[in-house]
């Protein structure tokens, strides 16, 4: 089924090979300090609504990321599936009756995993919060066997990023600046737009590797 969506035009393809390169193994990521605006690995989001084709629904909310009134708006938009809806709230209480409240991300992930063990093809998962939060929920859902199409994510609140260091492979949390010191190896990393869904993280590459100490101004760009 997956092969029948559109038309391969082999002449066009040849033209395409004529004008660019499919550089799977050959991307000078390290040199392109300004990422293109529409980087394809960069996720895009829309507001949450229930997928009524599903039969079991799990809504996971990062409480601090919501605007005033957003919780009740969410509750309203999920009315149509209310009978099959479970809600997990991370952080603090929200005006959502029946919600399972967990103190932090780690506890929330345990609750999500427990809820998704034995999930079926009819399961749907929704997550709203900061990018590190929603992608952690995404990873838990994927690990439980869900397909991307069974998961809906909405980014809300801070633009802070999780950054994965290409040198020591540690992740640095809550990054709001264009350049950040890695919590693993201490190198100053340029935060690139290249995003890994599996890690829920953006790539960080040492900014001054070629000329040590040559570091541009540090600015808060992900408030």
């Amino acid at each position: 089924m997956s092969l029948r969506k559109s038309i391969p035009d082999f002449r066009l393809l040849e033209n395409s090979m004529n004008t660019t390169t499919c550089d799977a193994g050959h991307r000078s990521e390290l040199n392109d300090r300004t990422a293109p605006p529409s980087m394809r690995s960069r996720p895009t989001y829309s507001s949450l609504s229930p997928d009524t084709a599903g039969a079991e629904h799990l809504l996971v909310i990062e409480a601090d990321a919501l605007q005033p009134g957003q919780a009740s708006a969410l509750s309203k938009s999920f009315t149509s599936v209310a009978e099959a809806l479970r809600t997990v709230v991370s952080g603090s209480e929200l005006p959502l009756p029946g919600a399972n409240v967990q103190p932090d991300l780690a506890a929330t992930l345990l609750a999500v995993k427990a809820r998704l063990s034995g999930a079926t093809m009819q399961q749907r998962v929704y997550a709203i919060g900061s990018e590190p939060f929603i992608w952690s929920i995404h990873t838990a859902a994927i690990d439980a066997g869900l397909d991307e199409k069974q998961i809906r994510l909405c980014h809300s609140g801070s633009l802070k990023r999780r950054v994965w260091c290409t040198h020591c492979h540690e992740t640095t949390e809550n990054v709001t600046t264009n350049i950040v010191a890695c919590t693993g190896c201490g190198r100053r990393l340029l935060v690139r737009d290249h995003f890994s869904r599996r890690l829920g993280a953006f790539m960080g590459v040492q900014i001054d590797a070629e000329v040590p100490g040559d570091v541009p101004a540090i600015e808060e760009v992900f408030p």
Partner: peptide, 11 residues
């Protein structure tokens, strides 16, 4: 996703 960084968005 893995071709994300290739800076040829105009194409």
């Amino acid at each position: 996703e893995w071709h994300g960084p290739v800076p040829l968005a105009h194409q």
